[in-house]
Nucleic acid binder design. Structure first.
Length: 448
DNA sequence: AAAAAAT
């Protein structure tokens, strides 16, 4: 018999929200984790694949356990990035839409702290935070964590490694009697050891959705390119996926900026996301991406973990990820909730040997992505650029006066001559966009 | 070495 949310002990208000959200059946991780959280006894370490519903696996039972008679903060959820924190907040809000008496407050950085201090005076039962901001609030004595009963670390492996200092500072403020619930898709051996130090009660270990070896639904492919043709191959791929949506991962913020600029010049519907942008811009780009106003997100590993955007059919590794786990998280942005997706890694010749390591370490098999020959890539990219120009709407912000002046410049040209000039301009622009080998060498030399 | 997280 299939277990339903009601069988797991989820109450009617939350069941109604699930109906509203058109979520009909619990996933494996939800079936396994919900009863344990509701039992109010044990600590919990949950290992479950990307995109299998971990947020609801702790969100549903913790919303149910929220005691509205109790005006103290009862649940603390920590996330590694502001974007993920906000996403968890929104998910919990929508799960709680029929439990209106529950108050949830998001305490992520990058936004003014005063409104958050204000919001805390409303006595929320549940808070979602990023570590830096929460430490700040504790230092200001704007928050008291002594009443916490449930402590959730999402992306637990990242939290106890990269953000260990802040997490340790926060744990010092928590009562020993609390329950600790850790959720993650990846758990390197050394982290597994470390994690034991964070638990105070008997620990239940749950592994869910793991019986399917590899990352079900993800098609792993790689393509070998010369440095000079990397951008061209990427654009050719993006053109072949016109109307689809995905994320392109780069190694550095500077590389994200550069690639996003190149894609913008070539009229791709794209935006950049990394940690040096203001939170306002980060929120705007994420909003546009979620609302499908832009199709392509160019990002650092800021977007690698937890981010759940609907209908992403591909992920591109424009640079190799640093770790095997980073590959798991990046590629896990596609093929979510049972969907299919492609994870394409673009490599240079000397990096090909790494592919075998990824295969061995992660138990996956890469197929080779067949790139077209240089000439057809260029032709194809140019044709699609022309189509995009055709579809471009006139810019109303340009004054009539300026338009008239520009028209006089081109006045004496025939249509054919005008097309020739626009095309030549496009090709020249692209030539400057793609670094030539000389330039690449010079750059390398400079770095050494 | 780079990314994230506080201002």
């Amino acid at each position: 018999m299939l277990k339903q949310f009601s069988d797991l002990g989820i109450n009617e208000q939350l069941q109604q929200s699930l109906i509203d959200l058109q979520i009909s059946e619990p996933t494996d991780v939800q079936k396994k984790a919900i009863p344990v959280v509701l039992n109010q006894k044990d600590d919990l370490v949950v290992l479950a694949k990307t995109g299998t519903g971990k947020t609801a696996a702790f969100g549903l039972p913790l919303l149910q356990l929220a005691d509205i008679e109790n005006k103290d903060i009862q649940t603390l959820i920590l996330a590694p990035t502001r974007e993920l924190g906000q996403q968890i907040y929104k998910n919990l809000e929508s799960l709680a839409s029929n439990s209106t008496e529950i108050k949830i407050v998001s305490l992520c950085g990058g936004t003014p702290i005063k409104p958050q201090i204000e919001a805390l005076t409303n006595r929320p039962q549940i808070i979602i935070a990023t570590p830096g901001r929460l430490v700040d609030l504790v230092k200001r004595e704007a928050i008291n964590l002594k009443s916490i009963k449930y402590f959730v670390l999402d992306e637990a492996d990242e939290m106890v490694s990269a953000l260990k200092e802040e997490v340790d500072a926060i744990i010092k403020e928590l009562p020993k009697t609390r329950r600790t619930l850790l959720f993650t898709a990846t758990m390197p051996g050394y982290i597994k050891q470390l994690v034991q130090n964070y638990m105070s009660k008997h620990v239940v270990h749950i592994e869910a959705d793991m019986e399917t070896v590899g990352h079900q639904g993800i098609d792993h492919q790689y393509v070998v390119v010369e440095p000079i043709e990397k951008l061209e191959v990427l654009m050719h791929f993006l053109n072949s996926r016109e109307g689809e949506r995905g994320i392109i991962f780069c190694k550095t913020k500077a590389a994200v900026n550069k690639l996003a600029k190149n894609l913008a010049i070539n009229k791709f519907s794209s935006g950049a996301l990394h940690g040096s942008l203001s939170q306002g811009i980060r929120d705007r780009i994420m909003g546009q991406f979620r609302d499908e106003h832009i199709d392509i997100l160019v990002a650092t590993d800021l977007a690698a973990r937890g981010i759940d955007v609907k209908n992403l059919s591909y992920v591109v590794n424009y640079h190799l990820p640093d770790t095997y786990d980073a590959y798991v998280h990046r590629s896990g942005r596609t093929a979510r909730a049972g969907a299919k997706g492609l994870s394409l890694t673009i490599l240079q010749e000397e990096e090909v040997i790494d592919i075998a390591d990824f295969e061995d370490e992660l138990g996956i098999t890469f197929k080779t992505f067949k790139k077209a020959d240089a000439q057809s890539i260029e032709e194809n990219n140019t044709l699609l650029w022309a189509k995009k120009i055709f579809k471009t709407k006139p810019n109303r912000e340009v004054s009539e006066d300026l338009k008239a002046k520009i028209k006089t410049i081109f006045h004496h040209l025939t249509k054919e001559e005008l097309v020739d000039k626009i095309l030549a301009n496009y090709l020249a622009q692209n030539a400057t966009v793609i670094p030539n080998p000389e330039g690449a060498k010079k750059h390398k030399k400079k770095k050494q």
